[in-house]
């Protein structure tokens, strides 16, 4: 079942008097539970596509459907609601809220919408996530007291806090060294397997994209390859 569908999507930006065709008509779908990677060089349209899926940008043309909801024409409130209920985000530069500690950063998305579950359940869930990303000892640390890898782990936990259907990660390893980057991708993969959350991440690192079971390759705003493979069991530690 497709959880994300893009149909002939185009995105044109205006830069001064010039028009930039970031996405030139792409069509693809991502199934629920996929660990999908959008691959391509800089300027190929990876981030634009993630932004469109993430409902933080709207296509110039075409249809973007998230979990059955077509995003075109939705008002800001509805888009915000959709983002909150369906999507989680992991950013290249982590984007943690600096005034909040690890626990509070992860709790943050949960406080934005209607309360689900009791306080105790919420606390247990956040603690589970912190444990899962291996930061139990850093629960009360602020972001500036963490390393890059640790920050990204917090970001992963935060993205999963609302139990979203889809987690979008825009080049999550770009600001990390290769070893840490690998461990972050492995963590995401584990979360994908354990929680059945759909992960869509962009990267231009070929070694990382190989871990994905669905790879969409872009070049100059167009899809050059859309391949689905099954990751071999045991490849994730």
């Amino acid at each position: 079942m497709a959880i994300v569908e893009l149909e002939n999507v185009r995105k044109v930006y205006t830069l001064g008097k010039a028009e930039v065709h970031a996405v030139r008509g792409v069509t693809f779908s991502i199934e629920k539970g996929d660990f999908a990677s959008i691959v391509g060089p800089s300027g190929s349209g990876k981030s634009t596509i993630l932004n469109l899926i993430g409902c933080i940008d709207q296509p110039t043309e075409g249809i973007v459907s998230i979990n059955g909801t077509v995003t075109a024409g939705l008002k800001d409130r509805a888009l915000t609601q959709l983002r909150h209920e369906t999507l989680g985000f992991i950013f290249q530069s982590f984007n943690l809220i600096p005034v909040l500690n690890v626990y509070e950063n992860i709790e943050f998305p949960l406080l934005l919408g209607k309360k689900k579950g009791s306080k105790k359940e919420t606390r247990e869930w956040i603690e589970f996530l912190i444990e899962a990303v291996g930061l139990a000892d850093h629960m009360h640390h602020k972001s500036n007291e963490l390393s890059g890898g640790q920050r990204q782990r917090v970001a992963i936990a935060r993205a999963l806090a609302t139990k979203p259907e889809i987690v979008l990660a825009d080049e999550p390893t770009a600001n990390l060294d290769s070893k840490t980057g690998q461990s972050i991708i492995e963590l995401m993969k584990r979360m994908n397997s354990e929680l059945s959350t759909t992960f869509i991440f962009s990267t231009h690192d070929r070694s990382i994209m190989e871990i994905a079971d669905h790879v969409i390759q872009l070049l100059d705003g167009l899809i050059v390859e859309d391949s689905k493979t099954k990751a071999e069991a045991g490849s994730i530690s």
Partner: peptide, 16 residues
């Protein structure tokens, strides 16, 4: 700005 974007991405409404 970026922080506002992050909060908005996670579902913070304009009013908030």
């Amino acid at each position: 700005t970026k922080e506002i974007g992050t909060m908005r991405a996670f579902g913070m409404h304009q009013k908030q």
